[in-house]
């Protein structure tokens, strides 16, 4: 199928992009890698009047190693994220989850920021952003605005970006030593969206869980932080003797899983429990 007509603009700087976006009106859309947007356009499920292609805005691209965080530019491709030594060293959960996104060709085009700004709860990166408490950086003509991940995913496909704002990237906190990570994705075929996914980060010491961050993919209109699990898992033995499983039993609490072609809500809730347990085990490396 074929997209409907739109105007197109390809700014070469962020300032120019903001200016174009500001002029283009409410129905303008930012085009990043296009791997989510183009299928929507082709199926005529979206009719933007203008696409602002930020593919040539160099400022949006790249990964920077800061003292307490890693900054990942919005236009950094999945492919680049997966191969980044900085990301793999300081925020391996991002690399692990990104490696499960779609397929290699899509990862060559698809971008880190595009995935977050698309705010699809079935996407793999939003739950990771939530689990890691990323700070998302949005720029407008007024300047930068820091949006904590917990506030970024407003609703289904609805990020907390104002018209005229562009996602610049995200600050991914360096969690420091002692943390283990895992992204557990359950999908029916390799390139299918996650039926449910679990992003987990666990800090252990002496065989005990000190702290855990758990967030769920496709368990509601937005990614969901499994706060009950996080509380329940604190202080339990990081082993296979059942306490992690017990904590994981609460994974679906507070979630509002969708029912669709691929799974009904009760099955998703069940999967969330099973997969959370597995993610915790893997993050604890036991």
């Amino acid at each position: 199928m074929i997209p409907a007509s739109f105007d197109y603009s390809r700014p070469s700087s962020l300032d120019e992009a903001l200016a174009v976006l500001g002029d283009a009106g409410e129905e303008a859309k930012v085009l990043a890698g296009g791997q989510s947007l183009l299928p929507l356009l082709r199926l005529r499920l979206a009719y933007p009047t203008t696409l602002v292609d930020v593919g040539r805005v160099a400022e949006l691209r790249g990964i920077a190693d800061h003292a307490d965080h890693v900054f990942i530019g919005a236009m950094t491709t999945h492919h680049e994220v997966i191969r980044s030594p900085v990301v793999n060293e300081h925020c391996p959960l991002v690399a692990l989850a990104t490696a499960t996104v779609a397929d290699p060709a899509v990862r060559h085009r698809g971008t880190f920021g595009g995935s977050l700004a698309h705010a699809d709860p079935a996407g793999d990166l939003p739950s990771v952003a939530l689990a890691l408490d990323m700070d998302l950086v949005a720029r407008s003509s007024l300047g930068d605005r820091i949006i904590p991940a917990a506030e970024f995913f407003v609703d289904y496909l609805e990020p907390a970006l104002e018209p005229g704002e562009i996602l610049v990237g995200a600050r991914v906190p360096k969690l420091g030593p002692g943390w283990g990570f895992h992204y557990e994705k359950f999908h029916r075929t390799a390139q299918a969206w996650a039926t449910v996914g679990v992003a987990a980060a666990v800090r252990r010491s002496n065989g005990t869980v000190e702290e855990a961050r758990v967030a769920l993919t496709n368990m509601g209109p937005t990614p969901v932080r499994a706060v009950t699990v996080e509380a329940a898992v604190r202080g339990v033995a990081a082993d296979r003797n059942g306490s992690l499983r017990e904590a994981a039993e609460q994974a679906a609490e507070g979630a509002d899983p969708p029912g669709d072609l691929h799974a009904q809500p009760d099955y998703r809730a069940h999967l969330a429990r099973v997969l959370t347990h597995r993610a915790l085990l893997a993050a604890c490396a036991v």
Binding site: Y8, R10, G34, A105
Partner: peptide
Amino acid sequence: KSVKSCSVLAVQAD
């Protein structure tokens, strides 16, 4: 790099 040419606009390939 491999890409799916149905999901790239010709203008993006400039």
